[in-house]
Write a protein that binds this DNA or RNA. Sequence first.
DNA 1: TATGAATGAGTGTTCATTCAT
DNA 2: TATGAATGAACACTCATTCAT
Lengths: 232, 232, 232, 232
Amino acid sequence: MPSQPATALGGAPAQERALRPQGRKTMQRLLDAGRTVFESQGFHAARVDDIVKTAKTSHGTFYLYFANKEDLFTALAYDAMAQMEMLGASLGPITPDEVGRNALRTWVADFVDIYAAHGTVIRAWTDREFASRDLGQRAQASLMALSGALSRRIDEARKVGATSAEIEGVACLSMLERFNYFQQSHQIDFDHDAAIDVLTRAVFEGFFMPSKPSPAVRRARIRRGAGSSTPA
Amino acid sequence: MPSQPATALGGAPAQERALRPQGRKTMQRLLDAGRTVFESQGFHAARVDDIVKTAKTSHGTFYLYFANKEDLFTALAYDAMAQMEMLGASLGPITPDEVGRNALRTWVADFVDIYAAHGTVIRAWTDREFASRDLGQRAQASLMALSGALSRRIDEARKVGATSAEIEGVACLSMLERFNYFQQSHQIDFDHDAAIDVLTRAVFEGFFMPSKPSPAVRRARIRRGAGSSTPA
Amino acid sequence: MPSQPATALGGAPAQERALRPQGRKTMQRLLDAGRTVFESQGFHAARVDDIVKTAKTSHGTFYLYFANKEDLFTALAYDAMAQMEMLGASLGPITPDEVGRNALRTWVADFVDIYAAHGTVIRAWTDREFASRDLGQRAQASLMALSGALSRRIDEARKVGATSAEIEGVACLSMLERFNYFQQSHQIDFDHDAAIDVLTRAVFEGFFMPSKPSPAVRRARIRRGAGSSTPA
Amino acid sequence: MPSQPATALGGAPAQERALRPQGRKTMQRLLDAGRTVFESQGFHAARVDDIVKTAKTSHGTFYLYFANKEDLFTALAYDAMAQMEMLGASLGPITPDEVGRNALRTWVADFVDIYAAHGTVIRAWTDREFASRDLGQRAQASLMALSGALSRRIDEARKVGATSAEIEGVACLSMLERFNYFQQSHQIDFDHDAAIDVLTRAVFEGFFMPSKPSPAVRRARIRRGAGSSTPA
DNA sequence: TATGAATGAGTGTTCATTCAT
DNA sequence: TATGAATGAACACTCATTCAT
C-alpha cells in the first residue's frame, strides 16, 4: 500500500493529443513542478510562472499540456484520490487483538506515507473554493470512500449500527487527516514512528475496541465474575 | 463556554484613534460583514468589495478602520483565539469514570459551539499562506495552547509521559477540529447530539482510558486475578 | 436629422451604479477615446491600453465603467443604431418629381453625415465576428429597419411588390453604406457635394423612377402618342 | 467569367523553391483550407491551427509554404484580384436598350459568381487593417480597376464627364459589392435570380440610362415634341 | 518534406489600496 | 466621518512563429 505518485493522468488538452516520449517527459516535469510549487505556496499563491520556471519550460508549453492552473491541480488531485480509494480498499478487518492492532498500525503507516506524498493536494481540495466545482465533488467522494471503509470495519468490530458507524468513520479520518496536515505543515514536528504509534493506539482504542467500563465498575464486575459491555 | 465576539480589537488605523459611537457602529458593521463574507467565500475569494457592500458602506470607509483585508481578518481571528484559549483553560481533569466522561462531553459540546461561531476563521488561519506571518504564529500558539491543555489532562489520566502526551493532545485536537470542519462545510451533515456523543466517546476511550488488553489476554488475566494496562 | 453622438448610454457596470458628475465625465472621455481609437485602428487592433491612454485615465478605471472592450464598443454601437433607426423613420415619401428628388437629396445628405459620425462602428458591426453575438443581431435589425424604410417608399413610388421592394431596399442601402465607407476610409476622396449629388441621382433614377423605355422604344411610342411603362 | 483559383501564386518561402508534385499538393491543401477557414471565421479569428488541422498537416509544414498567415491570405487575395480585373476587362459597352440591358445582366451575374467564390477575401482586404500594407494597396488598385471600367462605360453611355463618372463607378461597385456581402454573410437571403434582376435594373436605370424628366416635365416636353435628358 | 514541441511577447482583466471631495 | 473615483501592479492565458528531429 505504498505511495509514489506514479501515474498522474494529465490535463484535458494533452488527453486529446497523442504524446510522444518528449512530450510525455515535459508533461511529467510540469506535474512534478506543480506538486513542488503547490506544496510550498498553496494553490492560490502558486503562480503559473513559478511552475513553469521550476519545470524549466515556458508559459506556452504549460498551456500545451494543461488547460489552466486548476487543470494541472486536478490532474494531481485525481492521482491522490486514486491512492485514497486504494487505501480504503486495502483496509482489512481489524480484530480486537494484537493481530488487529498490528494490521491497523501498518495501515496507519500507509496513510502517513500517502499523505506525505499527496498532502498538499488533499489539503487544498477541501477548500471551500473547490466545493462547488467538479473537483470538489469527486474529492469529497474519495474522502467518503475512505471514511466509509473505516465505518464498515468499525461496525464489523463493534456493531454500533450504520449511523453511528458513519460518524465514527468520519471522526477517525478527521484525526488522521488533520494530524498529518499539522505534521506536514511543520506546525508540529514529531518523531515519525512515535506519531504512528499514537495514532494507531488512538484509533484502535477509540474506535475498534469495545467500550471499557470505568475502573470502579470493572472491579465490581470482576468480583462477580462478569464479561464485557457495549454502551453507545 | 459560549461564543459571541465580545472583544474584537480593531485594525491598526482604528486603534490609533478614539472611536465615537458612530465610528464604533460602523466598525462593528464591517466586522460582522467580514465574518459573513469570509464564511461564505473563504479568505481568498472574499472581495473587499463584498464586505463593503454587505456592511453598506464604502471602500474608503473600510480603510478608515482597517489597514487592509488581512487586518480585518486578524481582528476576527484574535477573537477566535481568545475563545480557544479560554476553552483550553476550562478543561478540568477527566477521570476515567462516568464523572469524567460527562465533564468531557460538556467540554466537547463547548468546542462544537465555538467552532460553529468561529470555524471559518479557524480554518483559514491554518492555511499555509499565513504560516509565516504574525497571525499564523499566534494562531498556532492558540492551537497549541488548546492541545497543550488536552495533553496535560491526558497525561494526568494515563501517565504516558510528556512526549507521548503532546502527540496525543494534537491528535485529539485534530479529530475535533477536522470533524467540525467537515460538518460546518456541509460535506457531511450529522445530527448534532449524535456527533457530540461519538466525539466524546472517541476522545474518552481513545485518550483518557487506559489501554484495554485484548479479550483473550483479559480472560487469562482475570483468571489469575490480574490488574492494569499496557500503554503504547 | 443631424448627427452628433450626444447620448451614448454606457456599459453594464456603469449602469448598475449611480454616476456623479465626475464619473459621468470620465465615462464620456472613455467613450470619446473609444471612438477615436476604434476609428484609427479598427476594433481588433484597438488596444484597451490605447483607449485608456487617449482618455488619460487608467486601466482600472476603464473596467469601472465598461465590462470589457466589446462593452464599450457596444455602447457606441447602440448610439449608432439609434441614429440609423431615426434616419429610417425620417424618410418621407419620395415622389417622382423635383420635390421628391430634393427630399431624397436632403435625406442622403443626412445619411452621409451620420455615417461620418458613426461609420467606424457601423463598419465593424457587420463583421462576421459579431454575427453570432447579441450586438450583431441588433445591428442587423437596425440595418434592416433602414432598408425596410427604403423598401416601403420604393414600393409606394413604383408598386413593385413586397419581395422585389425588399431586395431593392437592401441594394439601395448597400450602395449608400459602402460608398460612404470607401469615402471615409480614404480609399477614395471625392468632393462632398458632388458625391451627394451622384448618390441622390443614382438612388432616384435607379429606385424611385419608373423604368424608362429605351430611346428607340420611346421614339416609337411618342410617334404613336403613348404614355409610360413598367417592366421588371 | 467564372472563378476557380487557377493561379495561386504561393508564399515567399515556396516561391524560392521548385515544388515537386507532393509539395504542390500540400500547398494546395493549405490554400483550400485557408479559404475555408477564412470563410467561416474571418481573417482575424482564423487560427493557423485551424487551417493546419483542416489541411490535415502541421504547423511546421505551414511555414514551409507560407511566410505567415497574411502570406497565405495574400495568395488567395491575388487570385481574387486577378478575377476582379478580368471582370473589369470583360465589361463591354452598355447601350441604353435591351441589348445593353442583357449584356449588363450577364455581367452582373458574373460578378455574383465571382463574389460567391472570393467574397471572404474581398471583404477582408478592405479592412482598415490592410490599408497601409502592400496587400491593401494592390487590393484597392483592383477595386479601382473595376470601378474604372464601370466609369468608362457609364461615361460612354451618358457623357457625364470624367469626375462624375468616376464617382458613379464607385457608387455602382459599392452597391454590387455590399449587396453580395450581405447575401453571402446570410444577413439576408434572397432568391439568386431575383437578386440579379434587381441589381441589373438598378444599375441600368441608375447609371446607364439618361435621366428621366419627372412625369410633369415629360408631358410638357412631349407636347412640344422634345428629345433628350437633363443630368445631375 | 514533414512534424510535434517549444517559445514568449503581448493582451485583457482583476482587485487591494489610495485619493479628492 | 464618509464616499465614489482612480490607480496600476500583477496575473492568467493566447497564438503566431521557430526549433529539433
